[in-house]
């Protein structure tokens, strides 16, 4: 079977892997000139479905709990399994209780354990939550590695002008995110920063809760940190606004004053594709399948979505419209 995957973001690459691994002759077409620059490129790379449950609905946890295993199996060495640490300033400890009441899979940690986990945060936070089963990866490294792996598996990549025209495929999977022609989709703007400092090191993603300016800091290689991310109901891909940057930097400074001396290596903006319920969908229509609406959970949800899409491709009844199971669950809920 020949399958065309449109879009080389995290949804497209994971789908291509599932298809190629099951023996499909797979081509990935990406209208961008390279793998860089899509929403996934600006992701945090936190494999943190338990934390995300604070604001996301249950399907995100159900679909995402095996994500770290998937990434670890496909790209050995990329996944760091060190959990997530959630902290709040003393005057915001109510936020910590609120977060705890919405989530599961954590244990409460006090000052002494926080300083063992993250020595640079010693004395800064009295209470926190540790989500030990969570993990993280560097999305850019992971995407490049997955691209290389797919190429080695015989998957053909067509970038930029080569992406069109494409025909002669038995099946097509649309993974184009916000660029997909789907009126139900909206873009939710996310702004992020990459900072570099040698003055602080973290072993795991740290989330700083705040009633207005919540923040996460994800450690990356070369003393870099990904700092994110805003959630703005806007499809504008314009540069990071001064206000957003100020808020992100203010929160980073509150996490640790050493961030005040950090260099700003990069600012980035990604447009997250979301359906009105902020839940992902795999849908089939005729010979086409679409994966979309991964919202802020791309790396967490993509493996499960890719598996479902591959299942559809290999078991598809071309005359029947199929819906992703979460639709059924939601209808019956």
């Amino acid at each position: 079977m020949r399958v065309l995957v449109k879009g080389a973001g995290v949804a497209g690459l994971t789908a291509a892997f599932e298809l190629a691994a099951r023996g499909a002759v797979t081509t990935v077409a990406e209208t961008r000139p390279a793998i860089e620059g899509n929403a996934s490129w600006f992701a945090g790379g936190m494999l943190a479905p338990w934390c995300e449950r604070e604001s996301a609905e249950q399907p995100v946890l159900d679909l995402g709990r095996d994500a770290a295993d998937w990434w670890d199996a496909v790209l050995p060495g990329q996944v760091i399994r060190a959990g997530t640490l959630v902290v709040a300033a003393l005057r915001d400890t109510g936020e910590l209780d609120r977060f705890a009441s919405r989530t599961s899979g954590y244990r409460r940690v006090a000052e002494d354990e926080i300083s063992l986990l993250e020595p640079d945060l010693a004395g800064r936070f009295w209470r926190g939550l540790l989500f030990p089963d969570e993990a993280h990866l560097d999305p850019r490294q992971a995407m490049v590695a997955l691209h290389d792996k797919l190429a080695a598996m015989g998957v053909e990549f067509r970038f930029g002008a080569d992406a069109q025209p494409v025909s002669d495929f038995d099946r097509q999977i649309d993974c184009t995110g916000i660029a997909a022609a789907d009126d139900r989709l909206r873009g939710v703007r996310g702004e992020m920063l990459i900072l570099r400092t040698r003055d602080i090191s973290l072993s795991r993603p740290v989330r700083l809760l705040h009633p207005r300016f919540p923040l996460y800091a994800v450690p990356r290689a070369d003393t870099q940190f990904m700092i994110g991310a805003t959630m703005v109901e806007s499809q504008s891909a314009g540069p990071v606004t001064a206000r957003s940057m100020m808020e992100l930097l203010g929160a980073a400074y509150a996490l640790h004053p050493a961030f005040g001396e950090a260099g700003i290596v990069e600012t980035g903006v990604g447009i997250r594709p979301a359906f009105p319920d902020n839940l992902p969908r795999v849908e089939a229509l005729g010979t086409a399948v679409a994966i979309n609406g991964l919202y802020r959970h791309g790396f967490v949800l993509a493996p499960a979505m890719a598996r479902q899409a591959a299942d559809l491709v290999f078991n598809q009844d071309a005359t029947k419209e199929l819906a992703h199971e979460t639709d059924g669950q939601r209808r019956s809920a």
Partner: peptide, 13 residues
């Protein structure tokens, strides 16, 4: 206020 960046970029919401 926050949805304004880029004209009607908040239109979907």
């Amino acid at each position: 206020r926050r949805e304004m960046a880029g004209g009607r970029a908040g239109e979907k919401f």
